[in-house]
Structures are given as structure tokens and as C-alpha cells.
């Protein structure tokens, strides 16, 4: 183990959240809960990126009083990346939810095991 596990508490929390989301994705048979797990993973990534950009004692990257010194502001790049991530996350969630709704209308269940069972039974005959 490295020395910074408890100093990097935001990164640690992001890793744990990512793990929670990943486990939800694996273990829940319910498709809606799988999407929730995916969203938790997304949020973990945003937290991680935001934590990476932070610098102690510096301001948000909005110029005040014309000071354009690197020593005054935090890193603006991770903020831009988080924006991209949020947009992609919203789009993926919307498309997957609409696919899930289609599946529900077809098979009348949200359980992925049951859906796979029904698909294989349809394939038999």
C-alpha cells in the first residue's frame, strides 16, 4: 500500500463508489438497477476528475481582478472533462432506459435472467 490512501480521501471515495456501481452492474438481475449502477460509476468518475483538478487554497478558474497567474487558480482541464462525461452519461442513460422500456413491453419483465430464458425458448421453436 502506498502512503496516500487516507490523504487522497476523495480519490478513495471515488474508487469505492466505482466498486459499488460495478458490483451493482454485476449482481443485480434487474435492468433498471443495472442502469443505476452505471450512473453510480459515472458519478465516481466525476468525483475523481474533480478531485484531480483541485489545488489547495486556490480559486475556481474564473478570473478576478485581472489576475492571470497560474498560482491563483485550480486546474481548469478536469472541469471540462467532467462536462463531457456528464453529457455522455445522460445520453447513455436515456438510450438504455428506452431500450429497457422496449424490452419490458416485449417480455413483461425487467429481470434479465427471465428475459434471456424467454429469448432462448423463442429460439427453440
Amino acid at each position: 500500500m502506498g502512503p496516500n490512501l487516507l490523504n487522497n480521501y476523495f480519490e478513495t471515495a471515488a474508487m469505492i463508489l466505482f466498486g459499488i456501481g460495478f458490483t451493482t452492474l454485476f449482481l443485480q438481475p434487474n435492468l433498471i438497477k443495472k442502469v443505476i449502477g452505471l450512473n453510480i460509476m459515472d458519478s465516481a468518475i466525476y468525483l475523481f476528475l474533480a478531485a484531480k483538478g483541485y489545488i489547495d487554497g486556490r480559486l475556481a478558474p474564473i478570473v478576478v481582478n485581472g489576475v492571470t497567474d497560474m498560482e491563483a487558480y485550480i486546474n481548469p482541464i478536469p472541469s471540462g472533462l467532467v462536462l463531457t462525461g456528464i453529457v455522455v452519461g445522460v445520453s447513455v442513460t436515456a438510450v438504455s432506459l428506452s431500450l429497457i422500456q422496449k424490452l419490458y413491453k416485449e417480455y413483461h419483465t425487467l429481470d434479465m435472467d427471465e428475459i434471456l430464458t424467454k429469448v432462448s425458448k423463442e429460439g427453440d421453436h
Binding site: 500500500m1 502506498g2 502512503p3 496516500n4 490512501l5 490523504n7 487522497n8 480521501y9 476523495f10 480519490e11 478513495t12 471515488a14 474508487m15 469505492i16 466505482f18 466498486g19 478531485a51 483541485y54 489545488i55 489547495d56 486556490r58 498560482e71
Partner: peptide, 14 residues
């Protein structure tokens, strides 16, 4: 991931 996080550079360091 946690082991990786423990080796990451310190939080908030310029």
C-alpha cells in the same frame, strides 16, 4: 483500485 489510489500523488498538491 484502492491500492492505485493510495499510490496517487497527494490531493491538492500544486
Amino acid at each position: 483500485l484502492l491500492i492505485t489510489a493510495s499510490f496517487l500523488p497527494e490531493y491538492g498538491n500544486p
